[in-house]
């Protein structure tokens, strides 16, 4: 590239790095000098070709991104906490607390689905709340429904954290009180207590991703 405007200045002009008067001066020159005009077009074409090269790469499909997020989740926040995290304790290690939280959430699901918040819409009771046994899949599905119906994942998460606080307090009667507010769910509670860590993690993951 040989022309009357220095390469470095030409590139700065191309990149919009020149200030007002200097940019105007180069602009005027380029408009009247064929050699510099061609040099500028060539640099611009190189720049465009580089950008296109990256954009033209065929993107992986959605399943790739989803699988990547799941793999990363398993290797990071589902597995351990990064350095510097300040919290009282690991939620996933608090299976009993999780169980109580889940019972409350299930009660909320029942309330939502039976139309407690909307008298005009009477729906059948949520099946999972009355089931003798509760599979991890059913629980995940219910929590997912909660997130969708209420559209308030934050609320659900705060509920879990408040339960964690109740559990961490020394007043065990609070814990009992929570359990008693939703009678007839002992089977759910028991089922939750027997869940594997991985299943509890899956519940958390579904909540977090919805």
């Amino acid at each position: 590239m040989r022309c009357c405007v220095d390469d470095r200045v030409m590139i700065e002009y191309l990149e919009g790095e020149l200030e007002g008067p200097a940019a105007a001066e180069i602009g005027q020159h380029v408009a009247s000098c064929d050699e510099c005009h061609t040099a500028l077009l060539r640099l611009r074409a190189v720049r465009a070709a580089v950008a296109d090269r990256v954009r033209d790469l065929a993107p992986p499909d959605e399943s790739f991104w989803k699988a990547n997020l799941e793999s990363v989740a398993r290797a990071t926040w589902l597995k351990s906490e990064p350095a510097g995290v300040v919290r009282r304790g690991r939620l996933r290690k608090l299976a009993p607390m999780m169980a109580v939280a889940a019972v409350l959430l299930l009660a909320l699901i029942g309330a939502l689905r039976t139309g407690a918040f909307n008298p005009d819409t009477r729906r059948p009771e949520v099946a999972v709340a009355g089931a003798d046994t509760v599979s991890a899949e059913a629980l995940v599905d219910s929590l997912y429904m909660l997130a969708r119906l209420a559209g308030q994942y934050q609320m659900a998460w705060r509920t879990m954290e408040s339960i964690e606080e109740i559990g961490s307090s020394s007043d065990s009667s609070l814990y009992d009180e929570v359990e008693m507010t939703y009678p007839g769910t002992g089977n759910v509670y028991d089922a939750l207590l027997t869940m594997e860590d991985e299943q509890v993690e899956q519940v958390l993951y579904v909540l977090a991703s919805n």
Binding site: L69, V72, A73, T76, W77, E81, P82, V85, V86, R87, W157, L204, Y205, L207, A208, S209
Partner: peptide
């Protein structure tokens, strides 16, 4: 602050 799941 502890909400590690938000890394996703």
């Amino acid at each position: 602050a502890g909400a590690t799941e938000k890394f996703s």
